[in-house]
Amino acid sequence: MIEVKNLVKTYVNGPIETHVLRGIDLKVTDGEWVAIMGRSGAGKSTLLYQMSLLDEPTDGLVVIDGREVHTLSEQEKMRFRLYTFGYVFQDYALLPDLTALENVALPLLMEAMEPAQAAGKAKTALERVGLSHRLGNLPSELSGGEQQRASIARAIAERPAILFADEPTANLDRESSNVIMKLFKELHREGQTIVMVTHEDEYAAAAGRVVHLDDGRIVSEKANV
C-alpha cells in the first residue's frame, strides 16, 4: 500500500517560489488502479514523481508498505525502483542503443539474473505485449505504439509491486492507445497496482478510482463502478 501524507512540493528559483503540490493526502491500496487527472500544471505528474521516488518532496511523507521511503539512502531508493516499481513514461524512455529485448532485459540483469534467464523473461514480457516479432529492433525502428508496449514490457517483466504510468497514451494515436489501455486492464485484472496520470476521461474511466488535482490540491476523488 502507498500512503501519501501532506505532501508538499515547492520549486524555488531565486526569489520566486512555485507551489506545485500543496499538501496531498492519498492512499493507494494493493491491487488498486488509480488515475490521477487534472488540467495542465495541476501537479499530477509531480505527484507521481514524488510517489515513485524519482524526486524529493519539499515536505510530507510517502509511505510504502509501512516504510517511509524518502528517508532511504540513494542506494536503497535505487533498489526500491528496481525491485518494487515499474515505470511507463509518456515518451517511452527506451534506451536508443539497446534493442527491444535488451531494453527489457537490462533491469533484470541489474537484479543479478543470469543473461540467458533475463533474455527469456524479457522475451516473455515482449510476447505478452505483442512484440515477439520485434525483439531485435532498436527503438528507432519501432512505431510509437510499439515503443510504448516495449516500455510496458520492461516495466512488468519482473511483476513490480506498483506500476507508475505518466500519461502513457499522450503521444499515441487512438488505435495504439486502445492497445495500451487493454494491456493495463489485463494487468489490473491480474492484481497489478497501477498509478496512472492521464488527462483523458475515457482512459481514466478504466481505473478503479479517479483523483482530480487542481492547483496542487486534490479537489475530488471518485470511485468508478
Binding site: 525502483r81 515505470y87 524512455a93 534506451l95 533491469p107
Partner: peptide, 15 residues
C-alpha cells in the same frame, strides 16, 4: 536523459 532513465529504472550509478 538516458542516464536519468537508467537511474530511474533502477540501474545503479556505479554500473
Amino acid at each position: 536523459k538516458f542516464i536519468g532513465i537508467l537511474k530511474g529504472i533502477g540501474i545503479s550509478g556505479e554500473a
